[in-house]
Computed example of a mutant assay.
Amino acid sequence: MAPTPKPAHFTLDKAIRSNILALQPYRCARDDYDEGILLDANENALGHALPPPTTNPDEGAFDDLSLHRYPSPLHLDLKQQICAFRNVPSPTNIFLGVGSDEAIDLLFRIACIPGKDRVLVCPPTYGMYSVCAQINDVEVVKLNLDVEGGAFRPKVDEINATLSAAAKSPNPIKLTFLCSPGNPTGTSIPLDDIRAVLANPDYTGLVIVDEAYVDFGPEGSSAIRLLVEEGWSNLVVLQTLSKGFGLAAIRLGLAFSSPEIIQVLNNIKAPYNISTPTAALAKRALSPSGLTLFRANLSTLIANRSTLSTALLALPSILQILGAPHANFVLAQVGGKDGKPDNVKAQKVYEKMAREDKVVVRFRGNEVGCEACLRITVGTKEECEAVVEKLAKLLEE
Rank of each mutant, 00 (worst) to 15 (best):
R17A: 04
R17W: 04
N19I: 00
I20E: 10
Q24D: 15
P25F: 06
P25N: 14
Y26V: 10
A29C: 11
R30Y: 10
G36M: 04
L39I: 11
N42G: 07
N44I: 00
N44T: 03
G47P: 03
A49I: 11
A49T: 15
D58I: 04
E59N: 12
G60Y: 08
F62N: 15
F62P: 15
H68K: 03
R69N: 13
S72M: 04
S72N: 11
P73Q: 05
L74C: 12
H75L: 00
D77E: 08
D77R: 05
D77C: 03
L78E: 11
K79R: 07
Q81F: 05
Q81L: 05
C83W: 03
R86K: 02
P89T: 02
P91E: 06
T92Y: 13
G97T: 06
V98L: 09
G99S: 06
G99C: 02
G99I: 02
I104L: 08
L106N: 12
L106Q: 14
F108K: 02
R109Y: 01
R109T: 03
I110E: 13
I110R: 10
C112N: 14
P114G: 04
P114T: 00
G115T: 01
G115W: 00
V119A: 07
V119W: 09
C122G: 13
P123L: 05
S130H: 09
C132S: 04
C132D: 00
C132K: 02
A133R: 07
A133M: 06
Q134I: 01
D137H: 00
V141W: 12
L143E: 13
N144Q: 13
L145P: 14
L145M: 13
L145F: 11
V147N: 11
V147G: 12
E148P: 08
G149A: 01
R153W: 10
